[in-house]
Design a protein around this nucleic acid. Structure first.
Lengths: 228, 228
DNA sequence: GCGCCTCTGTAGCAAATGTTACGTAGTCGG
DNA sequence: CCGACTACGTAACATTTGCTACAGAGGCGC
């Protein structure tokens, strides 16, 4: 198969709309990098060397517990940036989590100096930066609240409801769901099992189909957890 | 008692170092507001109307679970800003948590328009904003990781170690520790009780004294939890 | 001192979650 | 069809955490 057209950083907002001198900076500084699936990109404690932008694919940012269980903090889709980079760029803080490509991913990397210059000179980049950081704060606060406020059962129901494609099917193994929620496969299987018995969902290898989304939603508030 | 000198926003970094036209903006726009202790400042879902800066006192940002348990997300000390405001300023997102004064607190409030103008015109304010957001992202990621990766026992030990004053004493009721960690007083009492028996700490009304910080630190990694 | 309030210590039970251990079923390549 | 691999189902058990209930102890005002 022929290579699909190589995406370019300059095609993405906000870089697309930069004035000429901004684009010239990009062209001079940006490099591109391809990472195969499941490749770890960044370790906890490592220092990020520049601003990373996802052009194609997906990155996953996750925490890793001493006992080996993972928990997804957030994911980064094409057109978005790894805020860890921004963090390190402006703060000299070490990155507090791990990053991994979940599918073959193309990144653009801007050296810290270039990004800082863009930030100083280009209002578009400033707004983009603040908005990105700000959304992330919002997202993280939501996650943090979720962990404290909801049971695993509720969070799993929420995962199914929010991530199911329009077809009503979530294509994800139970192991992946476990990682996502910071728990183990067995626990996920147990909970899904309950719902299968109750006729709310149907499971098969690698996917879960929602049969009664309304009933799942109801699980989210009522604290009465199981069927009795 | 005579009023202590009223702190002023213009005395704090980065406002202190603004050029004259920046300070003029401040003087015209900033208002000051005093909040007594334990006053709720902001509800979840409310929209923040401006940028808040703490001049005196402390604010606490927390999540509130349906069952009533709280969990501190972060606190805001004098000289710091409520990033929620920044969030709402730039993103039109609703604030995802609650805010409360934990002691009598004086705030400065900058209208959104004023802050946006400062951000656009003053490099100092830009840097301050990004650095603030960025530290918060860092902090929240750390918290999120902590919740997933460590047991309550470890998180409590960590709380004692990191928050104890230089005297080796933490002035906080067990109820407050519970709120902080998102659990209940009884659970805190049980864990502290273990450590009292083991001679690691000494408790009295309203305070906990560390007797053997080294032993507490050791609890943080070894997954062997209790004494046996 | 007395009453009232808040903070602490403790015990026992219930629920949620993690762990261990195995068996089954789908998928793929030969 | 066979073997290997991966994903899933399930059961029993250990641990952790939350919840209820109550008793004692420190502090404070009267």
């Amino acid at each position: 198969m022929t290579k699909p057209p190589m995406p370019d950083l300059a095609d993405f907002s906000p870089f697309r709309d930069l004035p000429p001198e901004g684009r010239r900076l990009l062209e001079r500084g940006a490099t591109s990098r391809h990472v195969p699936s499941t490749t770890p990109l960044l370790h906890k404690g490592q220092k990020a060397s520049g601003a990373y932008f996802v052009l194609e694919g997906h990155l996953r940012v996750y925490a890793l517990a001493p006992n080996g269980t993972e928990a997804t903090l957030y994911t980064i889709a094409p057109g978005e940036t790894c805020v860890f980079a921004l963090n390190s760029l402006f703060n000299d803080l070490l990155y507090p989590a791990w990053v991994q490509a979940v599918e073959p991913t193309t990144l653009a990397v801007l050296p810290a100096a270039t990004y800082r210059q863009l930030f100083a000179e280009q209002p578009l980049i400033r707004d983009f930066t603040v908005r990105t950081l700000s959304s992330l704060v919002f997202h993280l606060m939501g996650q943090l609240e979720e962990v404290h406020a909801y049971t695993l059962r509720q969070r799993l129901a929420n995962l199914l409801l929010t991530h199911a494609a329009s077809s009503g099917e979530l294509r994800m193994t139970q192991q992946q769901m476990g990682f996502h929620l910071g728990t183990t496969r067995e626990v996920v299987a147990r909970l899904l099992g309950e719902w299968v018995d109750a006729g709310l969902i149907h499971t098969r290898r690698g996917a879960t189909r929602l049969l009664d989304p309304a009933a799942l939603s109801r699980l989210l508030d009522g604290s009465a957890p199981s069927a009795d």
